[in-house]
Design a protein around this nucleic acid. Structure first.
Lengths: 229, 229
DNA sequence: CTAAAAATATGACATTTATCAGTAGTCTGT
DNA sequence: ACAGACTACTGATAAATGTCATATTTTTAG
C-alpha cells in the first residue's frame, strides 16, 4: 500500500511539517500519488487546480507563456516543494504551467484538505505564509537579475544555481540536465544566444559539455562572471 | 487626537479588515502616524523592520539596488497597501528600500502586534496569505514582461499602469508624476532609453507632456504598442 | 541498427539597447 | 529673481542581443 504522509521525510522540508498528527492522517487518506515522465505536464496555465502537488522526486519547471509565444521559466521546483499553493490559496486558476523536466513522483493533495487546515491551524497557515514570503523575495531577486544583468551573467548564474540546487553526477556534470531551450527560458533570452554563450564558456574553459550535459570546470571564474568581471 | 483604526476606511482595502474589534483596538493603541515628504525614505534595503507601514496617503516605490548601482523598482505601493509585511513575516532584514514618490502619510504598526495576531487569528493570517499570493502572481507577471517584451512595450505598459492605478488630474496628466529616472527603473532600462522612447511616443501623438508630466492622448494605440503592434 | 526527427551549433546580419558627451530646460532655496 | 543643481533631452556610437538560415550532432522511434 501507499506510504503514509506521517512517515514521509519529504514533509520535513515544506509547510506540511506544521500539521498535527490528526491533520496529516487526513492528508494521507485523501492524497493520491502520481508518476510523471520527463516532459509530461502536471498542469497547464489557466487550469483550475483541485489541489496541490508535493514533489517526492524529480524536478518540475513552472513557466508562463508570453505574448510572443516564448515560455518564461519562473521557478524550478524539486523534492520537498509544494506546487500550486498560490492558486489554491488565491482561489484562482493557475497562472503558470508545471511540466516535468525529469521523471517525477508527486503526491496530489485535494484542496479541501488544505483549505480546511488553513482555516483551523494558524501554525500551518503561518508556515505556508513564510514559504510564500520566501518565494516572493526570490521573485524580486529574479526581477532585478533579469533587468540589470547581461545574458552572459545570467547564464553563468543559472549554471551555478543548477549546481548548488541539484548537485553534480559522478562524472562531474550537472545532475539536472536542462535543454538549451529550457536554459534560455530560465534566463529570458533567445535559444541561440544561450547556445552561443555556452559555447563561449566552453572555449574559455569555464565549463565542459557532452551532448546537452554541462559540467563546471572553473567555478571561481563563473562566479566572477556573475559579478560582472 | 489621532484617528482610530477602527474607523479607518483604508483598512477595508487590506488584510487588517480580517481583524477583530479587539485586535484593531490594540493596533490603534500601538500605532504611530508618520508624515513623509516626496523623496524621503521609509526604510532602506537591509534595514531591520520593527513593524509594518500602512499607507494612508501618497505613493512609495519599493526598489532594490543592483550590483551595477542601478535601482530596480519592484512595486509601487499606494493607499491601503501594507508595506514591510514580507520582512516581518520572514523575520529577515528587508530586501527592498521604500522611498516616497509623493508626499505620504503612513501608520506604523509594531511587529509584535502583527505577529501576535498572526498566531491567534487564522482569518487574519489567511487574509495576509491571500494578499501575498496576489503579490507573488504580480511578481511573476513582471518577470515575464521584463524578459519577453521590448523596452518600448514596457514603457507603454507602465504609462497605462500609472493611469489605471493612480488616475489622471483635471488637465489630463497622470496623477502620479514619476521622474524619467523612476520610469526607467520601473521598466528596467537606461534613463536615456526611457526618455528617448517617451519623446518618440510624443512625436507619434500617443502622449503629450509638460515638464515631467505625461498625459495619454491615444490609449488604444498605446495598448496596441503593449501587445506588440 | 538505422532513418527521421529533434536539438545543438555557428555564421551573417538586423535590431535593440546602452553608453558617453553635451545642450537645454526646470526646479529649488535664498 | 537668480545662481546652482538637478532633470530632461538629443546625437553619435558602441555593445548586446535577436533573427534567420543552415550545418552538424544527438536523440528517438521503429
Amino acid at each position: 500500500m501507499e506510504s503514509r504522509c506521517e512517515n514521509c521525510i519529504i514533509r520535513q522540508f515544506n509547510s506540511l511539517r506544521a500539521m498535527s498528527k490528526e491533520e496529516l492522517k487526513q492528508v494521507s487518506n485523501s492524497k493520491t500519488t502520481k508518476i510523471l515522465k520527463k516532459g509530461e505536464p502536471l498542469f497547464e496555465e489557466g487550469d483550475k487546480l483541485n489541489g496541490v502537488y508535493c514533489v517526492r522526486n524529480g524536478v518540475s519547471k513552472l513557466s508562463k507563456l508570453s505574448a510572443n509565444g516564448k515560455d518564461q521559466i519562473v521557478k524550478l521546483a524539486s523534492k520537498g516543494e509544494v506546487i500550486g499553493q498560490r492558486s489554491v490559496i488565491a482561489q484562482e486558476n493557475t497562472n503558470l504551467s508545471a511540466i516535468a523536466v525529469s521523471d517525477m513522483e508527486v503526491c496530489f493533495i485535494p484542496k479541501e484538505t488544505i483549505t480546511h487546515t488553513l482555516q483551523k491551524n494558524p501554525n500551518f497557515t503561518l508556515e505556508v505564509l513564510r514559504h510564500m514570503a520566501h518565494d516572493l523575495k526570490e521573485a524580486d531577486d529574479v526581477i532585478v537579475n533579469i533587468s540589470q544583468k547581461t545574458v552572459k551573467q545570467r547564464i553563468a548564474e543559472a549554471i551555478l544555481y543548477l549546481k548548488n540546487n541539484f548537485g553534480e553526477d559522478k562524472d562531474g556534470f550537472l545532475a539536472l540536465t536542462l535543454s538549451r531551450e529550457d536554459i534560455s527560458n530560465v534566463v529570458g533570452t533567445a535559444t541561440e544566444s544561450a547556445i552561443r554563450i555556452i559555447s563561449e564558456f566552453k572555449k574559455k574553459g569555464l565549463i565542459h559539455t557532452s551532448g546537452k550535459k554541462i559540467g563546471i570546470k572553473d567555478e571561481k571564474k563563473l562566479q566572477d562572471m556573475v559579478e560582472g568581471f
